[in-house]
Design a protein around this nucleic acid. Structure first.
Lengths: 208, 208
DNA sequence: TCGATAGCCTATCGACGTTAGGTTATCGAT
DNA sequence: ATCGATAACCTAACGTCGATAGGCTATCGA
């Protein structure tokens, strides 16, 4: 059962090939299993055609492997949100589009979203590398988008862009995570709920 | 190590005593461990002074035990929110107080909140018993509070109380779960952020 | 061609959730 | 007073898990 299978050993200097295979296998199995607990390192090793211990040559532990697998997919989030935001020249409408894109991306990749955004991250911001974290980058771009709204006079500048972005993030995350956590609740028209929520929040920002 | 220890067997008809002990031990260990994976059924059994298999006489599996342990504590949430809401006669201010109470309760019991509100519940509303679920009851009361605002003319009646409550819930849950998930993020003044968020949302409800 | 080493494997560990099946104290009925 | 039924546990064990220790081997520069 722990067959090394057909795959031949990588050449020297090409050890990262297995690392890549492991990341792909981990993501694939995670999406299919739904929950990290239901995907074992043994299954990942089998899918990547190696033995379980070989995983630990490339990753500290199972968590690190799964996290990195999700982080990679999440790199698309930032681009996805940016693309959506560029659909409109109106800064406020652009903000709305960005929010909708964030939520849609989360719902489209619930397993990734859960692991990265609904699992406790004890590490402080100092410890995690800002450059590589797609989530952090996406948030920074959200702050920038809010700042652009303030600069254009579309949003009041009483609260800082950072604070406003935090509130927006909380709203976006709230509906995303609830829809993921309780898929069978009576949500009614989910898209309408999402739109309504963003409208209410942005309208509130204008009136406060 | 699997010592039955000092405890004597319960009398006939008093089998629920162990059940109670197990629930209390499970909650205690969960709060201390932080994560369900870090509290084993063996540890729970030891704390409750019985053997692991005895747990399965009272609960289908580990999940059911931990879930029920959290559900019990969550029964306080509804009362807590109701008490807070009664602090003001103004329906809108009452709604604000209720929201703050919900968030505070979640942050005060992060392990419980995570398990009940941030772990995927596949069960549909038909399957889970409405009466016993504290979370459902709390939501129903939130809908009632919103309805009272609408009736008093404090909130527009264009969207139903149910829909508005969903949005409020999402906002409350968003900030609560984010603060729990990323305890080391740069949140600034958390209480101010919570207040700001509720203000923005409620203000938005008035302007939409 | 040969030592160094990158790349991977075999064997195994302790802990886990859970189950099968037995044991014993209690209690109503005789 | 005793005896069968049964509630309330227990002992033993299974299969699986994440992870580690230590060995083997193909590759590659010198």
């Amino acid at each position: 059962m722990t067959t090394p299978a057909t795959r031949s050993r990588a050449r020297k200097g090409e050890g990262d090939k297995l690392r890549e295979r492991l990341l792909e296998a981990a993501e694939d199995l995670l999406v299919r299993a739904g929950h990290p607990d239901n995907v074992s390192v043994r299954a990942i090793a089998t899918a990547a055609q190696c033995t379980p211990p070989s995983i630990y040559l490339h990753f500290a532990d199972k968590d690190e492997l799964l996290m990195e697998a999700c982080e990679r997919r999440f790199a698309d989030l930032d681009r996805y949100a940016q693309d959506a935001a560029e659909e409109s020249d109106d800064p406020l409408e652009s903000l709305r589009l960005r929010g909708r894109a964030y939520i849609r991306f989360g719902l489209d990749h619930p397993q990734h979203y859960r692991l990265l955004m609904m699992t406790v991250h004890e590490k402080s911001l100092d410890e995690l590398d800002w450059e590589s974290s797609a989530g952090v980058k996406a948030f920074m771009n959200l702050v920038g988008a809010v700042q652009r709204c303030i600069d254009a006079g579309a949003l009041p500048g009483e609260t800082t862009a950072h604070e406003t972005a935090l509130g927006l993030w909380a709203t976006m995350h709230g509906i995303t995570s609830l829809l993921i956590t309780f898929p069978n609740f009576e949500w009614g028209d989910r898209a309408a709920l999402v739109d309504h929520l963003l409208d209410v929040h942005i309208e509130g920002l204008l009136s406060v």
